[in-house]
Design a protein around this nucleic acid. Structure first.
Lengths: 195, 195
DNA sequence: ACCTTTATAGCACGAGTGTGCTACTTTGAA
DNA sequence: TTCAAAGTAGCACACTCGTGCTATAAAGGT
């Protein structure tokens, strides 16, 4: 039998290297060679786990989504709807360096999504999943038995606000400080709960 | 005296070619050769107006900002604060194919901004200009003599909402239709005016 | 000890890139 | 008519890229 290596761990390691390269030099510079060097692995070894660059990048994008999902899963969701909504929403904002890096990677992939059909499919999936999650939060915030139309509208608004804040927090971190991000979001949830 | 050519027009033509290439293949594929071919111009000719690729891309980014600014300048700003705010804000959303393409280019440059200091400076400028414009709209919407803190908060929120909606309209146009974009925005302005 | 399977390593080819550079063409003032 | 300025054209070099490919190393069941 063959040499034993944890394949999933190896792939996760390489995805992390992809993230670091993207964060440092952008998605356009995430070449196979640079990722391999970043992971301190030979090109041949990398290509044993991802035979093409597309596979590598697609996996890395998917892994970002799963990383966020797992972080959200660790949250303690006991509390009032307002508390839960705030907890989840704040987790999605770039309030520290780690999450800012994460958002930067998400932006890079979002841009790539516009011209790469394969990435687009993955991205749409994450978008839809987050939208669904946010919809349940909104449903608990609004008055019981609110019409679907209101739910959809407020979910669109909350989702856009979160992504817009994340975008600003990453692109203009000097102006858009974590404090301001947090203030805008909690203020929005306050309005939602009182409407 | 030399051959006479409208230099500004030439540069604008090349910037438009850059936009088309970015829209079709992404910023990473906006090579000097491809842009020249897109503009039906030789490499040498292109490089007479932009001696390096960076100059070309920086000008193209700046030109996007100016294009938006000029579109906003043509709007008829007579009306109630609510009407003016809606007019301006809706102009910024990807409600038709042209503006969707524009937003796609903006997203591509936003991603590039994260790892390119030169682009970042230009981008920050546009961001700040838009933020200032939105602040005046918000000031007219809120009760007179509202504290600066409220103005800042609501401006952050509106700005993030607009950019978030634009992002969703471009990345997931099938789900996030122009109708939904418009509904979310007018609903937000409605709340803003009544708070 | 052997051998099959898996992992690691990296060469090499063709393609594409940015930019320095030279050559040619067109223009209009002198 | 002449000529300097300005525009157009594209070659060529050094480089990076993705990927097909072969070669070597390690490991554990038999």
């Amino acid at each position: 039998m063959p040499r034993v290596v944890d394949v999933d761990e190896r792939r996760a390691l390489l995805a992390a290297a992809v993230w670091r390269v993207i964060h440092r030099e952008g998605l356009a510079n995430a070449s196979v060679r640079k990722v391999a060097a970043e992971a301190q692995v030979s090109m041949g070894s990398l290509r044993h786990y991802f035979s093409t660059q597309n596979q590598l990048l697609q996996f890395s994008l998917q892994a970002v989504g799963e990383r966020v999902t797992q972080r959200l899963a660790t949250l303690d969701l006991t509390g009032t709807p307002r508390q839960v909504a705030e907890l989840v929403a704040l987790e999605l904002l770039p309030l520290d360096a780690d999450r800012r890096a994460e958002v930067e990677i998400w932006i890079a992939f979002s841009a790539a999504t516009l011209t790469d059909p394969d990435l687009r499919a993955l991205s749409d999936q994450s978008h839809e999943a987050l939208h669904t999650l946010l919809r349940t939060l909104v449903a608990d915030l609004l008055p019981p038995n609110s019409p679907d139309q209101d739910l959809d509208l407020e979910t669109d608004r909350l989702h856009a606000l979160i992504d817009g804040l994340a975008l600003h927090g990453a692109t203009t971190p000097t102006q858009t400080t974590p404090t301001r991000l947090q203030a805008a979001l909690t203020h929005h949830l306050e309005h939602l709960a009182r409407s």
